[in-house]
């Protein structure tokens, strides 16, 4: 019984609204406008090599990397504690962990704006101890903090899922064979949880490196990242060619990191493979 046709409306929808737009981006990235008509050119990609823009790309990767590492260090113990907790309490803890995610993404970022302000709550609190006020908002610290706050659950949940499915007999066997808890962690638990760690890393790094809201609101627009640069090209300077070239580079960056991740993660279901 053939039912293939059922996927066709979806296929044409995706063709029109996903594939065609991406091809348009590709087209514009290789087109330079000369006296009103487009010509094939590498000019847009050459512009990216300008130290000014390379600096922006470097900052995006650096800040996203720092946030990812901090999320991993903070999040791994959380995932372990969640997985170790009693089954009766586990569900409640997971729900409690997910509830903040139901708050709008922009709201979560906005909440930190009010906290970090010069006369915000954190500075008021520090003031009681005769400290500050400090300029916390519009710093790189604020940007990284915003990323960690927004993306920490993306690190914890995949690691938790893997740890939760792990057979507890494995760590027990390790103890029985005389391994210390630390050795058990590094030789048994950590290697087995690697697929979760890898998907956590990519789920934090990807939105962090592409965000433009967090640097705009918490960085005050002073710490331009690739996302901000792309936004400027399309909504302010109307330089679609350069904006498209930056988008293509961003896509390649993401696909490359996915590729590296999936190389280490052989335990994947059917389909996939391409990314």
């Amino acid at each position: 019984m053939k039912r293939n046709w059922m996927a066709y409306p979806y296929f044409f929808w995706m063709l029109l609204f996903t594939i065609v737009p991406l091809l348009m981006v590709l087209y514009f990235s290789f087109t330079a406008s000369v006296n009103g008509d487009g010509r094939f050119s590498f000019a847009n990609f050459q512009r990216v090599l300008d130290p000014l823009y390379l600096n922006v790309i470097w900052r995006s990767v650096r800040l996203a990397f720092i946030s990812t590492v901090i999320c991993l260090v903070l999040g791994y113990p959380v995932a372990m504690l969640l997985a170790q907790s009693q089954a009766s309490r586990q569900f409640t803890l997971i729900v409690l962990f997910v509830i903040p995610m139901w708050m709008n993404f922009l709201a979560r970022t906005y909440a930190w704006m009010t906290l970090l302000e010069r006369n915000g709550l954190i500075n008021t609190f520090l003031g009681w101890f005769g400290l500050g006020p400090y300029n916390l908002l519009h710093t790189e610290f604020a940007v990284v903090l915003g990323m960690i706050y927004n993306f920490l659950p993306f690190m914890v949940l995949p690691i938790y899922t893997v740890l939760n499915k792990m057979d507890p007999a494995l760590t027990e066997a390790s103890y029985d064979l005389g391994a210390t808890p630390i050795r058990t962690f590094f030789r048994v638990t950590l290697p087995l949880s690697l697929p979760g760690v890898l998907s956590g890393i990519s789920m934090v790094f990807m939105p962090a490196v592409t965000t433009f809201v967090i640097p705009q609101l918490l960085g005050g627009g002073q710490f331009t990242m690739i996302g901000n640069l792309i936004e400027q090209q399309f909504l302010r300077s109307n330089d679609w060619g350069f904006g498209s070239a930056l988008s293509i580079i961003l896509m390649l960056l993401i696909l490359l990191s996915m590729r590296i991740m999936s190389h280490y993660d052989r335990d994947r279901g059917e389909g996939g493979g391409f990314f």
Partner: peptide
């Protein structure tokens, strides 16, 4: 997998 912002500008 595509970054949000790329989906957005292409659309």
């Amino acid at each position: 997998l595509n970054p949000d912002i790329v989906t957005a500008i292409s659309f």
